[in-house]
């Protein structure tokens, strides 16, 4: 884990100086997590691919003020992917030429995935997440789903630690109500698959 962090910090340093290959490596590191998160919100493979791509393009555009947490840009990417998912058209218009040149495959779920979807309904989770405010969704993403501490998440969202705790409590209650599920954390984690 430490080695990964050190590598990423070095990559980010190189990326900041305009090294495209370093950005490529950062994409390799985080594309899985960012895509799964986008998919969780959009429940559409092609849209999730676009939201993920936009997040990485924004990482470059916004590089001078990206907040790094424990040597990683992943929290920033997740927050940005959330915004991209909620404002997909705006992001697409900014990067239209680049995105339109990319190939979207037709995605078919396997029988196994279909069966699993009956157990953990992506659409149910997406529907519940969609009812949260932007801030609450970011909080749930970072703290409940991705496991960042409240103190790590707070500065990214521009909140105090105390306010973050309060909001998180409210968001958790709201989400539990939307989902009607008693063991929310388990539910969310089960929808993530391999967290690598």
């Amino acid at each position: 884990m430490d080695a990964t962090r050190i590598d990423e910090a070095a990559l980010w340093e190189r990326g900041l100086s305009g090294d495209g290959s370093a950005f490529g490596s950062i994409f390799d590191l985080h594309r899985g997590r960012v895509y799964r998160h986008s998919y969780r919100l959009l429940v559409d493979a092609s849209e999730a691919e676009d939201a993920t791509a936009i997040a990485f393009l924004e990482l470059w555009r916004c590089r001078s003020s990206v907040r790094v947490v424990d040597g990683s840009v992943l929290p920033w990417l997740l927050v940005t992917a959330t915004n991209s998912a909620r404002n997909l058209n705006r992001g697409r218009s900014r990067y239209r030429a680049l995105l339109e040149a990319l190939p979207h495959e037709s995605h078919h779920r396997s029988a196994e995935e279909e069966a699993l979807n009956d157990v953990v309904a992506d659409t149910q989770l997406a529907g519940a997440l969609a009812q949260l405010s932007s801030t609450d969704l970011q909080l749930v993403t970072l703290v409940m789903i991705e496991g960042y501490s409240v103190s790590s998440a707070a500065p990214i969202l521009g909140l105090s630690t105390g306010a973050t705790r309060t909001r998180l409590h409210r968001a958790r209650t709201a989400l539990r109500r939307y989902l009607g599920h008693p063991t929310l954390a388990l539910y969310l984690q089960s929808s993530l698959g391999d967290a690598s």
């Binding site: 899985g32 895509y35 990485f56 470059w60 040149a101 979207h104 995935e113 993530l192 698959g193």
Partner: peptide
């Protein structure tokens, strides 16, 4: 469960585009 994955063809194409995008000079 099987987590959703970005398609390899999209990932490869986007990775190339990202590297090119970053390498291009700032305007």
């Amino acid at each position: 469960m099987t987590a959703p994955q970005m398609s390899d063809s999209f990932a490869d194409a986007f990775r190339r585009a990202l590297v090119t995008h970053v390498d291009a000079p700032t305007r």
